[in-house]
Design a protein around this nucleic acid. Sequence first.
DNA 1: CTGCTGGA
DNA 2: TCCAGCAGG
Length: 339
Amino acid sequence: MGVDISGILVKHQTSIRENGGITVSIDAFNIIYQFLSSIRGEDGEPLKDEHGNITSHLSGIFYRTATLLENNIKPVYSFDGKPYRLKDETLKERKAIKEKNIAELNLAMENKDAEKIKTLSSRINYITADIVSESKKLLDMMGVPWVQAPSEGEAQASYMSKVGAVDSVISQDYDCLLLGARRVLRNFTMYGRRRISGTGKFINITPEIIDLKENLDNLGITQDQLIGIGILVGTDFNPGIRGIGAKTGLSLIKKYGDIESVLKQKNKTIDNLDEIKEFFLNPPVEDTGELKFAPPYREKIIEYLCAEHSFSENRINSILDRIEKNYSGANQSSLDKYF
DNA sequence: CTGCTGGA
DNA sequence: TCCAGCAGG
């Protein structure tokens, strides 16, 4: 997914603890999609409340956000607006369906459920307008700000790190670096072992931090050249040049100076090259005002998650207790002011 | 994905 | 006490 320039990047192992106090941006659609495909019950379906409404996104957002807040990390969620004009909607949709089917297929294979494997292709999940509005509503109740990106949420999230509105972007995608994010945190809330899909094997996952300036200095290239490497390798907007991976891309860009010269030497073309470059250099984004955080509004959250959506009151209360430790100085008037 | 629990 | 495996909604 995204731009695979992993092979040329310097990464540092980090931990949630040593990042206490920072502010981070998160591409909301990206993680909601992950939650919908990975938070599932034994039947392989997303979690649902007693009325049959999907709740995997609420579960994921609540627990993920809580983990960050408990560690004194302040998240801002960036929601997709209009897709960038270069994004091929049909391809994007097919890609999403494919990814979901792969995730479900892995699950079915683990369960050795032959019948389920057959029905996979007919089951498709979309991020609906309800899922989006429910997610925003929960964030409001948790006192966590979100921004509506004019276009791609990832571009907006990266821009906030670029201009210092947040410290880092939490993302698995290296696209953020092409988009100018100063720092990217990967595997940030994962700890210990993670199952490799399909196989029964586990690998150790550790959070890592990637610093843009450090990497540009280390590689001896400019931001424009990094973008050139990314486009040669392939982005969401172009398939990339066959035979060019991150390392080859780097040496070609360093040898010839820019992507145009590389393409000329290789006698290749990339459709919409200028527009793709423009997207990474100057994507549609907006300056955000002051990001306001507030203590979670316990009664509203209990009402929403437990009464309306069948979550366990014990569980939600104990998580809220943990979050509230970071807001011990807050008083009732600040709560009233916020809502 | 993350919390919780029961067996070692 | 620890962590693998299961439950959550």
